[in-house]
């Protein structure tokens, strides 16, 4: 089974990477897939078990967010293979309101920037565990 929750703010640590003002309305969505199984015992009961959780997130933001790409080239054009980074996804429901933490997970960030609409499509594939 999977859960889906909205978000409109992304943080790395305490730094806000994408604020609500940059979000395309309604575009932020986290999907959390459970690796579920069930066994039936001899007394006729079904026991459900969740082995792991795999989170994925996607959103659209105004502007060029290619710098958030995991292992994005630095100013000198250097790249290097890298592990995912831990991001926190939050939902801010009122102006200046306290954000609700939706989920924190380590993920690989991929960004596609559309120059026609000046909009970035961001997808983050994650892992529930941090290494």
């Amino acid at each position: 089974m999977a859960c889906t929750f909205p978000f409109n703010q992304v943080k790395r640590g305490s730094a806000v990477l994408i604020p609500p003002a940059a979000f395309v309305y309604g575009s932020g969505s986290i999907s959390v897939k459970g690796d579920d199984s069930a066994v039936t015992t001899a007394d006729g009961l079904i026991h459900n078990y969740r082995n792991a959780i795999t989170p994925e997130a996607s959103c659209e933001a105004r502007g060029d967010y290619r710098s958030l790409d995991t292992a994005a080239p630095d100013d000198a054009g250097n790249v290097w293979p890298t592990l995912p980074e831990e991001l926190t996804f939050e939902l801010v429901q009122t102006p200046d309101g306290s954000p609700t933490a939706i989920r924190t997970f380590s993920g690989i960030v991929s960004v596609e920037y559309d120059t026609r609409e000046n909009k970035s499509t961001i997808s983050i594939s994650g892992c529930a565990a941090s290494y």
Partner: peptide, 8 residues
């Protein structure tokens, strides 16, 4: 003893 999921 249920597994619960939610989709908003």
């Amino acid at each position: 003893a249920a597994l619960l999921d939610a989709t908003i």
